[in-house]
């Protein structure tokens, strides 16, 4: 009986993923109601997701969280980049052209500031914790931008695989923290209007972090933040292995 059920679930992974996420959402909604914080239900749902990812990782030693448990492999399709990007784009429906134009300049500036600021912080941490060579420092700095900028930089500069793994992990920490903390930080940093959301997207840069963080804060802001964030990784891959590396090399000699 159970064999048959698990066979059916495995053959219909995406559909089962809908069931799983629906249950998570329902549970999150109940918790949010119970603690009288109705607005937090999306961020609670995202936290449950992260917790499941942790459990999946511990149980399987895999890299794809809960999706590495065969029964839940459909989660990788539902939460993968294809449907994620498709859904992010759909949120732009209803966004106003004037709002985008108004914050366009600040959004563009925030992209450059955001890439170099996170890079700088990452480099300082790498230096303080004992890395002295320009290649490793630049790679870890890239990881502090996003988990794609790090390995792209590391590969271009021929960093060791250990350093590349660290840079990926730094990017993952950033994306998870951005997802989890944004709803709590939002009121303190004035993240409540389209212009601030565009700046936020450009500063944080992690597409998944920004998308998850804004979803839990105010879904109306998602298109504005996602719009700038989506340019961040590309800009980082462009600037960090070139300009960033030259700066670090000049300083470290």
């Amino acid at each position: 009986m159970l064999d048959l059920l698990s066979k059916i679930i495995k053959a219909n992974g995406l559909v089962f993923a809908f069931v799983v996420v629906a249950l998570i959402t329902l549970l999150a909604d109940r918790i949010a109601t119970a603690i009288k914080q109705k607005r937090m239900s999306s961020s609670i749902a995202i936290m449950i997701g992260l917790l499941l990812a942790y459990i999946g990782g511990v149980l399987t030693n895999g890299k794809r969280g809960i999706a590495d448990i065969e029964l839940f492999s459909g989660m990788a399709l539902l939460g993968g980049s294809m449907l994620r990007d498709y859904a992010i784009i759909s949120t732009a429906y209803g966004a106003k052209w004037e709002n985008l134009k108004k914050a366009g300049f600040a959004g563009t500036v925030s992209l450059f500031v955001g890439v170099f600021f996170s890079f700088f912080v990452g480099c300082v941490v790498a230096l303080l914790l004992g890395y002295k060579d320009a290649v490793s420092v630049t790679t870890i700095g890239g990881g502090a931008c996003t988990f794609i900028v790090g390995p792209v930089t590391g590969t271009a500069l021929k960093a060791s695989s250990e350093v590349i793994a660290l840079s990926i992990a730094a990017g993952v920490v950033k994306s998870i923290l951005t997802m989890a903390l944004t709803p709590f930080v939002a009121p303190k940093i004035g993240l409540n209007n389209p212009a601030a959301a565009m700046v936020y997207g450009g500063i944080m840069g992690t597409t998944s972090g920004v998308a998850g963080g804004l979803a839990a804060t105010d879904p109306k802001l998602v298109p504005y933040g996602a719009m700038t964030a989506t340019f961040y990784t590309g800009l980082g891959c462009l600037l960090i292995p070139s300009v960033g590396f030259l700066i670090v090399k000049a300083i470290l000699g």
Binding site: A17, F18, V20, V21, A22, I24, T25, S42, A45, I46, M47, I48, G49, L50, L52, A53, Y54, G56, G57, V58, K63, R64, G65, I66, A67, F72, M75, A76, L78, G79, G80, L83, R84, Y86, A87, I88, S90, T91, Y93, G94, A165, I168, A169, V172, V173, S175, I176, M179, S208, A211, G212, A215, P219, V222
Partner: peptide, 22 residues
Amino acid sequence: IAALYIPIIVAMAAIQNVVAAI
């Protein structure tokens, strides 16, 4: 599709490499 956005983000959170990050 826009209404499915948050559920998709929840699924995305569930497939992150949280263990490696920690």
